[in-house]
Design a protein around this nucleic acid. Structure first.
Lengths: 221, 221
DNA sequence: ACAAAAGTGTTGGAACTACACCCATGT
DNA sequence: ACATGGGTGTAGTTCCAACACTTTTGT
C-alpha cells in the first residue's frame, strides 16, 4: 500500500439507524438495549459495524434486516457523525440512517429477540453516546422530507384512512391540521385509490380505506 | 479494548470538499491535480484524511484552510460515500462536504501552491474515483438549499448588485428568471441594504450596490 | 336520541407569473 | 444619437388558510 495512505489513522465505522414507526396514534422510535459494557442496558439506536466488502447502504440494510427482519423499507442516509469522543470505547465514525416502517409489519417479523422496544417520541429514554443528537436531526429531516415528498405512506399499513394519515402528519409536525384542507391536499396528489371498504370499529360511521397507487408512486424522491 | 470492537474492520476516513465559487458570470468548481499514484494528475476534489483527534467538521475545515487558505466560509456536510471499491488503493469511507466561497476572496489567499484551478460547471474534466457523483449530489443539494435559504450571498463579494445575484441564481438553476420578479423577491427578504454607490464599468448606467444586512442574516439555516 | 367521528365547499388574502416601457450613461 | 443594461408596476392566476354544517351509525 502507498506510504501516503499508510500513515493515516484508521477508524471503526458504525451504522446507526433511526427507525420511525407509526401505530395509528403516535410517532414511535424503535430502540434496543445495548448488550455490552460500557453502558450496558442503555437504550440505543439499532446499529452495527461496516464490513470490509459492503457499501454503506448495503451495511445499513443488512443491519436492519438482522436486527428487525425488515427488508425493502425506506432507508436513507442522514448524516455522518464523527466527534472524536462520541464513542467512549474507541474512535468511531457513525453513519446514521433513518428508516420508515409501519409498526404492524414489524410486529409480524420479530419482537423480543433483541430486546427492541417502540418508544413514543415524547417519552424517549436517555440514549447512548450521541444518539439523541441523531434522533433530533432525523426528525428535522423527516419533516423536511415529508413536506415535499410523499413519504408518509411508508409508515402506513397497506390500507389506511385519510384521518389516520392526518394523525400521522400531525404526529410528525407536532401540530393540528384542518381536515378539509388536509384531505384536499392529499387527494390532489392522485396517489391514492379509494376502496369500497370502510374501516370499522374505530369510529361509528367508519372511514373509507385507501390504497397507494403504486404505479404513480415511484421512489425517486 | 473490547472484544466486540476489536474484531471489526477499520477504515480510512477521507474528507472531500466540493468547493463552489462564482466569478460574476458562471458557477465554478475548485479542483486540484492529484499528486500521487495511482491516478496521478487526475483532477480531484480537495480532500484529506481524518486525524485521530478531530471531528468531521473540524477536519473538513482544517483541510479547506490548508489547501485554500480560506476560513469561516460556508461548509456543510453533504453525505458519506462508502462503496468498497470507491478508492482503488484501499477501503476508504469519504465524507463529502460542500463549500460556498467567492472567487475574489480565494484569489487573494493562494493560487498555484496546490495546482488548484477553477472549472466551469459545464466543462468539468474527468474526476477521480466517485468524485463526479459527489459533485452531482452537491449541485442538487445546493439547488434545494438555495430554494429555501439565502445561501447565495455566501458566493458573492461583500458588495454586489442585484443583476449579479440574479446571474448567480441563474447559474445555479441553469435557467433564466424575470428580473422584475427576481428583484422583488430578493428585496422582500429585507436582508439587503442598498448603498449609495453604483457599480461602474460593466454597464453604462451602472447598477446600485447592495450589502448583506448581517444583523438579519443568521446562519441557522 | 344522542354522541362521535367522517365527509364535504366557499371565500378572502397572499404569493407567483407574465409582461413592456422608461432611465442613465458611455461611446 | 444610439446602444446597452438598469430599474420599476400591474393584472390574472393559483395556492393556501380559515371556517361550519350535515351524515352515518353504534350505543
Amino acid at each position: 500500500m502507498l506510504e501516503e495512505y499508510k500513515q493515516q489513522t484508521k477508524c471503526l465505522v458504525a451504522l446507526d439507524s433511526i427507525i420511525f414507526g407509526f401505530d395509528g396514534e403516535e410517532l414511535k422510535l424503535l430502540l434496543v438495549k445495548r448488550g455490552i459494557e460500557p453502558d450496558r442496558d442503555t437504550w440505543s439506536l439499532m446499529g452495527g459495524w461496516l464490513k470490509s466488502n459492503e457499501s454503506l447502504d448495503e451495511a445499513a440494510n443488512r443491519i436492519l434486516l438482522e436486527l428487525t427482519g425488515l427488508e425493502g423499507v425506506f432507508l436513507e442516509q442522514l448524516s455522518a457523525f464523527g466527534d472524536p469522543n462520541r464513542d467512549s470505547v474507541e474512535r468511531t465514525v457513525a453513519v446514521a440512517y433513518y428508516a420508515l416502517v409501519n409498526v404492524a409489519d414489524y410486529e409480524k417479523k420479530i419482537s423480543d429477540k433483541f430486546h427492541a422496544k417502540w418508544f413514543s417520541m415524547h417519552e424517549l429514554p436517555e440514549l447512548l453516546f450521541d444518539h439523541a443528537e441523531m434522533v433530533k436531526l432525523a426528525i428535522e429531516r423527516l419533516r423536511y422530507k415529508a413536506a415535499f415528498h410523499p413519504v408518509g405512506f411508508e409508515l402506513m399499513p397497506d390500507k389506511f384512512t385519510i384521518p389516520q394519515l392526518q394523525t400521522l402528519y400531525e404526529a410528525i409536525y407536532g401540530s393540528k391540521f384542518d381536515k378539509r384542507n388536509f384531505s384536499r391536499k392529499i387527494l390532489s396528489t392522485n396517489l391514492l385509490v379509494k376502496l369500497k371498504e370502510k374501516q370499522k370499529g374505530f369510529s361509528k360511521k367508519g372511514a373509507f380505506l385507501y390504497q397507494l397507487d403504486k404505479s404513480k408512486y415511484n421512489l425517486s424522491n
